[in-house]
Nucleic acid binder design. Structure first.
Lengths: 196, 196
DNA sequence: CGACAGATTGGCAGTGACTGACAGGCTGGC
DNA sequence: GCCAGCCTGTCAGTCACTGCCAATCTGTCG
């Protein structure tokens, strides 16, 4: 169950990477909306049906890998020492994600620009982020000394939502600065204005 | 240009209200996803084509009126006296929106439950909220004594995004408490945890 | 009252994302 | 070499949404 036959898995990864590559290329040429899934399928040399089996939705072509990063975020936050403040723990989680990305900065900027430039894409993006937030609730509650109930605590949710909001704001500004600004610095500014 | 012949406008409003009514009824019965636009059109006695002319998208059936409330929010925040703090100004804006709703609490709860229970709907919802945030940027920048540039200031964006995040968190918790909790109180708790 | 201009409506056909069902092919174990 | 199981492609269908065109309706003016 644990170990796949690695050959299939590897080729699958290769196919996925190839598809994403071609898709981003097409998006850059014609724009996201103007590109059809049929074009992506043809360009990557797979059938339309298989394309939808790899990526459930068109949006997932762009922000599909966010899925996996969520687990890393939660694990990192959970692994922070208890004496680390909630804010620092969350920050540590995000910095880990940033450095863990296996993309070049150019690629990250390209994808981010795509996301922040397309309202529906951005919507889908924040939908995924919402799942991260939900997963973080018990972790943060414990860290704040709150017993976890069925319904999240308002204080924990507020803190989590705020950090995500500031990360999002910093990301958007980073994109709008063409990647020339320091995203980390922008985040610090945003959060300082909030907590100051 | 300003004054429509009011008769048309009134009947239009009536049609819109009728459509929304029937739509929410169907959504409650069968669920949002399972209800087709054709059903809504038939139930409201209009053609499918006209339905799409009234509501550009299916999501707008649920969160279409949010549009208008945005202007009210911005206007209210802008109208706050300069000595009022940024946080209080934003809070004033949201309380105004809450009281300005022409729906019964039950209806608000019904709609909110629908939105927070359907990820794509919620996405669309936050997409609209994003536009509010953008509109607020210059207002908040001025209030914080920041000169407005082409690209928003990180501090202003952080504050705005945080308030929206806390309002969202409070709304979601209010829904998950079945409307039995005090949404305002939840917001205060969330924001206090952030700023404290 | 009757005709006219403008806007609204409905029907129709089409696009594009997405899905289920079915058939054939490739992989891995015997 | 053969069988079981997953993967893939093909096909047809659903549903949200849009452009086009004709019919209809509203208010106005002669």
């Amino acid at each position: 169950m644990e170990k796949r036959s690695t050959l299939w898995d590897r080729s699958r990864q290769a196919v996925v990477a190839e598809i994403v590559d071609k898709a981003l290329e097409l998006f850059a040429e014609q724009g996201y909306e103007a590109t059809t899934m049929a074009q992506v399928a043809a360009s990557a040399g797979v059938s339309q049906r298989s394309l939808f089996r790899y990526f459930g939705t068109k949006e997932d072509l762009v922000c599909g890998e966010q899925e996996a990063l969520g687990d890393l975020l939660v694990a990192t936050v959970e692994a922070q020492a208890p004496e680390v403040s909630t804010w620092d723990a969350l920050r540590a989680g995000f910095t880990t994600i940033l450095t863990a990305s296996d993309h070049t900065p150019q690629r990250v900027l390209e994808i981010s620009t795509l996301i922040f430039g397309n309202p529906p894409l951005r919507s889908r993006y924040s939908e995924k982020r919402l799942r991260w937030q939900r997963a973080l609730v018990p972790v943060i509650e414990k860290r704040m000394g709150i017993e976890s109930g069925e319904i999240p605590d308002a204080r924990a949710m507020g803190v989590i939502a705020t950090v995500f909001a500031c990360v999002d704001a910093a990301s958007e500004l980073w994109v709008r600065h063409g990647g020339k600004a320091d995203a980390f610095e922008l985040y610090e500014q945003a959060l300082a204005a909030v907590r100051g």
